[in-house]
Design a binder for these strands. Structure first.
Lengths: 231, 231
DNA sequence: TTCTCAAATGAACAAATGTTTATAGACCGG
DNA sequence: CCGGTCTATAAACATTTGTTCATTTGAGAA
């Protein structure tokens, strides 16, 4: 099976390496471009120029602009899910929520385009949105729901309330990177800098760990209130 | 000054009305389109089709696609600022924060494109972003800073921390509408429906009114901590 | 060096883009 | 019904768009 003639093997290996390199360069450039203007707003030649290849070269690796766009998202999502499932395994320890927050924020600060890609896809209601919902957002939701069911409270709430709490977490982490350019133009500190990310991370940590039980309590009251009103 | 010949006046009035009507129809269609795909991703003909006018008609009212885009944003921002300044006037009563939240959320649910426009402009770092920062985001920041300075605590924090708290509010209100399509694909309830908006409004109210003093306390500790570490 | 073959390219294509211009249409006072 | 004036249109323009294809380049094997 592995007895490919050596001459060919080494040759193919070298070529495969080169090919992989350009493919990656194109994918990186595409990520940056798509994260700024979205699928419809990005020009193929612009990606090519940024990747320093001819416009036609791009089509040696990806059959279409749309396919390239999907490739960008397909590469971006798994690591995000990985962070969650990693902590889901050992989630019995009490500090786990704090750790997830830090891990997510650190990952996002290393790949600041991800948040923007997700927001753009959501806002424009693109073709990829269903996949995004099922492969990325639903797992987050499940994780947070499980977390709260176990630790926070004996009472249980509608699915929707959990979903909104999961969304709250997303708003504060992913949203921070999506809105960063606006915040940057308003204050002096760069929200994407180490200091900025650290500050936001602490804010989320404080909110989630220390205050969420209270939030649950109060939400319970709200819910009972509105159940009363319903009668 | 007002003695314009009557014949002309009535004629002009009727025509002005018609013109204003089409101009508004174009502006509305443009708002929807730009809120989905942003400036670069939106096609002029697409706006024209949605407004049910010929592509050329559009240029009788707006000199360029870019100008039309700016007109959309110029119309959207003032009401947002108005909500704030309205409550800023009578902000001594204790329930004011709660009222601002409700007012903002209600306004956004009536004009759900606004959030998306803002997020798109921020993400793509468009030409309008500086104006957005100074005319919309900075006032919010000032308002919230003032609020906290007066009521919350004797200690004071860096400008940046206040900014991030203002941003927190924006994430949860505006971000809710921007991310709504994703949330909608993940759960059953439509986040933009009356029930959905009400739920999110309560979440924010609970968070801000009941929990923010504690958040400030804890943030103060964090700050002192990091000041200690700095030495 | 020469040969081979995948990788990269320049030139070309039809369709779509933002915008302009010359013409037709609608409204209203006479 | 007429004539003027503003509004709306169809057709056209140059450029840019996504994509294809025939050709050239370049690195490794002989």
């Amino acid at each position: 099976m592995s007895d490919i003639p050596n001459e060919f093997a080494t040759r193919d290996l070298a070529q495969a390496k080169r090919a992989a390199f350009t493919a990656a360069r194109i994918l990186d450039a595409a990520e940056v471009a798509f994260a700024r203007r979205g699928l419809a707003g990005t020009r193929v030649r612009e990606i090519a120029r940024a990747a320093d290849v001819n416009g036609a070269t791009l089509y040696n690796y990806y059959p279409s602009k749309h396919a390239l766009y999907e490739a960008v998202l397909e590469r971006g999502i798994p690591p995000l899910s990985a962070i969650l499932s990693e902590f889901a395994a050992a989630s019995n320890e009490s500090e786990s929520a704090r750790h997830v927050v830090r891990a997510v924020m650190q990952h996002l600060s290393e790949r600041p385009h991800l948040s923007k890609l997700i927001y753009l896809e959501a806002i424009s209601e693109g073709d990829f949105l269903p996949k995004l919902a099922h492969r990325w957002f639903r797992p987050i939701l499940e994780q947070i729901m499980g977390e709260f069911r176990v630790r926070a409270t004996p009472a249980h709430f509608d699915e929707e309330l959990y979903a909104y709490m999961a969304a709250l977490f997303v708003h504060l982490s992913f949203g921070h990177f999506a809105l960063a350019p606006l915040l940057a133009k308003t204050i002096d500190e760069d929200p994407i800098s180490l200091a900025g990310v650290e500050r936001q991370t602490r804010l989320i940590e404080t909110l989630l760990e220390q205050l969420f039980p209270r939030l649950l309590e109060s939400a319970k009251e709200d819910q009972e209130e509105s159940e009363l009103q319903r009668e």
